[in-house]
């Protein structure tokens, strides 16, 4: 039984956590029939309104706070990598883990298969796979349990490769320090305008596969303008894992 979230998962080592439990309180007041909004029930039925004021994300937020406490206790910086499927998250991580050995590890989320974790382990780093089944995103609770499988000795960087999806993962704080959103040149310059929410929450937008830019007619200035419009506070870097162009700036950003 997991002591931290009560979910029934086996839990084989202890870790330090922040517990910021918010408590809802309720109070009621009488609510007569004199109000003017529509009701599905009989108009004569007297109603009582109960204030709740609780976020649907409250539970995820608690687990994200636990993860944050764990990262802090272990002296780790955590990065949440988000993009559509095929934007190059895993290829970027292969090169990044290899560069940062032995100080980096990865948690990787997919609906099915261990393929990405197997690919990443070939770099020599630890990689833990989360298979989400039908779930379209990682949540903080899944990450909390994946952290149990990470050996933290000497570790400084933890990368969480989210499920490839530009919609749902945007809503879930995993406890990370930084959010990185990837946009590959093959996807089209207007993707930030189509999926503004995920880009808005980014600390860094990485334009990937820049070696293909010319071949696919990538309109760089349009892409930069669109990113700046929906993510005015995000830093933007351009790179190609294949040629190595721009990788030094990415490593410098990680270290900063």
């Amino acid at each position: 039984m997991c002591d931290h979230c009560g979910c029934g998962h086996p839990h084989d080592h202890s870790h330090e956590h922040n517990h910021n439990h918010d408590h809802s309180h309720e109070h009621s007041h009488n609510h007569g029939d004199g109000h003017d909004h529509a009701h599905a029930h009989a108009p004569s039925e007297p109603m009582r309104t109960i204030d709740v004021r609780k976020s649907a994300m409250a539970q995820n937020q608690r687990h994200a706070d636990q993860n944050r406490g764990w990262f802090r206790a272990k002296g780790l910086t955590a990065f949440n990598l988000l993009s559509s499927p095929g934007a190059g998250k895993t290829a970027l991580l292969e090169a990044t883990l290899k560069h940062l050995l032995p100080h980096a590890a990865a948690i990787v989320g997919d609906l099915q298969t261990e393929n990405d974790a197997i690919r990443l382990r070939a770099s020599g780093a630890q990689a833990v796979q989360i298979t989400t089944g039908a779930t379209c995103h990682l949540d903080a609770h899944m990450v909390l349990h994946a952290l149990e499988k990470i050996t933290t000795d000497g570790l400084k960087f933890l990368f969480i490769e989210n499920v490839g999806n530009l919609v749902c993962p945007a809503s879930y704080d995993l406890g990370e320090h930084r959010r990185v959103v990837l946009l590959s040149v093959t996807e089209g310059e207007d993707k930030p305008l189509k999926y503004p929410v995920i880009f808005h929450h980014a600390d860094l937008v990485l334009i990937t596969k820049c070696d293909l830019a010319e071949a696919v007619g990538f309109q760089r200035e349009d892409a930069l303008k669109n990113i700046r419009q929906v993510a005015p506070r995000a830093k933007i870097l351009e790179l190609s894992v294949k040629t190595g162009a721009g990788m030094d700036a990415w490593f410098a950003w990680l270290a900063g």
Partner: peptide, 22 residues
């Protein structure tokens, strides 16, 4: 300026419920 600080717009909150008074 385009670097405003986000203060709201991310919420998904249950504000209140209505139940029969009786």
């Amino acid at each position: 300026a385009t670097d405003g600080e986000l203060r709201g717009g991310c919420e998904l909150d249950l504000i209140s419920i209505e139940v029969p008074d009786h």
